[in-house]
């Protein structure tokens, strides 16, 4: 039969995590349809149809789907499930919210954050904050799975899949969107950036974070990340957090500034291609995963690094 991939988007543009999850979904060996759910998502559907290797794009356009709340999105997916062997989505906050609800309604377990597809029913996924990699085989009749997007390269463009509407489900109306406070940023998106510069507790203040980390990130064309300690201390907003409980990134270059390297943080970045640590403590755990380290005062080293670029 067919695989249904749920597209991640913000209502206007298709998120790159979708193209990465498509690469994983294709490895299941069946044709892949993409579902674009939301309100006024015509442009997103066109972008999805242009991805290489897509069989069909199915579009559910309705006010109830505007913010992709779990209740209407899961009702939609359960309604479509009969025609699919597998329902797959990138492990974004939207999909981590909705897909387990779909799985339970279909009476199957979910495969969470798959990092490798070994066959149509066998997958690798990290556990214990990335300190162990499990190979799991499912015996469920239908696959529900989220994909760790950073583990897969995105598929390219060049497709021309047909776009077909699907009827949205009725909204039970027991949940409602109230408001959103989204962080505005001109920088690349953290989860898919090629370079990430992250700051930790050693920066000491939100002012220092802005004065040191952001200019270095801009000089590198990088996204900005933060450790949990920096977020908890109020130096950076929540959605900057890299780690087991924040975002998982695997950029070409990850620069950790004033970050000790707790297990929780390493879980979110240790698959980066090249890791640079700037830290005054040569014994910090981050040094064990860093390819290159500068040991010394970050307040001198960071401006000097920016100047050297």
């Amino acid at each position: 039969m067919t695989t249904l991939l749920v597209a991640e988007h913000d209502g206007r543009t298709l998120n790159e995590a979708t193209a990465r999850a498509l690469a994983a979904a294709a490895k299941l060996g069946a044709p892949v349809d993409i579902l674009v759910a939301g309100e006024g998502v015509g442009a997103v559907a066109e972008a999805a149809a242009a991805l290489a290797g897509v069989a069909r794009v199915r579009v559910a356009d309705a006010p109830a789907l505007a913010h992709l709340r779990a209740e209407p999105l899961s009702a939609l997916l359960v309604g479509l499930a009969a025609a699919y062997d597998a329902i797959v989505a990138p492990a974004t906050s939207t999909m981590k919210n909705a897909l387990p609800r779909v799985a339970a309604l279909l009476d199957v377990m979910q495969v969470s954050e798959a990092t490798a597809i070994l066959g149509p029913d066998t997958f690798e996924r990290p556990t214990y904050a990335g300190n162990a990699i499990e190979t799991v085989k499912t015996r469920d009749p239908k696959l529900v799975m989220t994909i760790r997007a950073s583990a897969f390269a995105p598929v390219g463009a060049g497709g021309a899949a047909p776009v077909e509407p699907v009827a949205p489900p009725a909204d039970a109306g027991r949940s409602a969107f109230v408001s959103a406070e989204l962080s505005a940023s001109e920088r690349p998106e953290l989860a898919s950036a090629r370079i990430v510069v992250s700051g930790g507790r050693a920066l000491g203040s939100a002012e220092n974070f802005r004065a040191l980390i952001e200019p270095l990130a801009d000089a590198l064309g990088a996204a900005v990340g933060a450790s949990r300690a920096a977020v908890d201390a109020g130096y950076a907003p929540n959605d900057f957090q890299v780690g087991q409980t924040g975002k998982v990134v695997a950029p070409d270059l990850y620069v950790a500034v004033g970050i000790s390297g707790a297990i929780q943080h390493l879980a979110g970045m240790k698959d980066s291609k090249v890791i640079v640590a700037i830290n005054k403590d040569p014994e910090a755990p981050i040094m064990q995963v860093a390819d290159y380290a500068l040991v010394g005062d970050l307040f001198e080293l960071v401006p000097a690094l920016k100047a050297a670029l």
């Binding site: 969107f177 959103a180 406070e181 907003p237 929540n238 975002k247």
Partner: peptide, 8 residues
Amino acid sequence: VDGGLETV
């Protein structure tokens, strides 16, 4: 949520 905060 990924981009910030959302209230439902």
